[in-house]
Design a binder for these strands. Structure first.
Lengths: 76, 76, 76, 76
DNA sequence: GTGGTCTAGACCACA
DNA sequence: GTGGTCTAGACCACT
């Protein structure tokens, strides 16, 4: 029952919003296995900062929908 | 022999040891992008359980050396 | 009675349950900034171990609802 | 033995550099308990992105030098 | 089978 | 004492 005065509860919903969207894309096959997920890109697509994006990925990792893999090409 | 028994002053952390090892392998190119990392294998190699292995991956993720991707599908 | 016994389809996660609860308390102002959070207490309140509690805090950190600060010194 | 060609090994040292710096400040008392740590500020101070900052904080958390506390004032 | 998650129990360092 | 960390063992969902 958080009030709107100082901090909008809307903000936290963002992470779940992003999570749900990604969930759909993954389950529907839009996002292939091994497919890089650019946090910055996602952030921009959802008009959010990278914080909720990270939160969303955390959630999806909990669901086993995303996994950690090496990213040697960090020069790219 | 389930307990640790010893510690270093303020810098124990099996996870960091594992993280450093993986870091080297990634930077040296031993681990390719999208390369599956068998957590159990790593755990055995380091004589540790899976917990510190996951912790190590988290650290590397913070460093941008590993990335979250749609569940790579085990067999591929 | 150490085992879980049951699960929800694809969205279990004791950690998320805890995270949501804490999220509410923070947004509602029940938890003040810099307020110590006793992990053991939380664990007991939720009938869980300390592991999911820490996981929940991680999630909230991704959401920017909790922050890392220099070890608050227990007694203060 | 990472080569300098594509990715500079210097980059990862950054997180440790930051970690060591913060460690000193905390132990010397420059950073008080409960003191907020602004990841963005740190990032700028070290001329780095927020990724190595997060990595540094992860390391310090492993050392028990920083802890997670609520940040209700996210409207500030 | 593999990853992700959790319990329960135990240890150390710091305050 | 408290937090942070680890082991060992076990369960489920998805591939």
């Amino acid at each position: 029952m958080a009030l709107n005065g100082k901090h909008s509860p809307v903000k936290e919903a963002v992470s779940r919003r992003i999570a749900e969207s990604l969930r759909s894309k993954i389950l529907s096959g839009s996002l292939q296995p091994g497919q890089r997920i650019r946090q910055e890109i996602l952030a921009e697509e959802f008009g959010a900062s990278r914080l909720p994006v990270r939160a969303a990925l955390s959630i999806l990792e909990s669901d086993g929908l995303v996994t950690l893999v090496p990213t040697p090409a960090h020069g790219r």
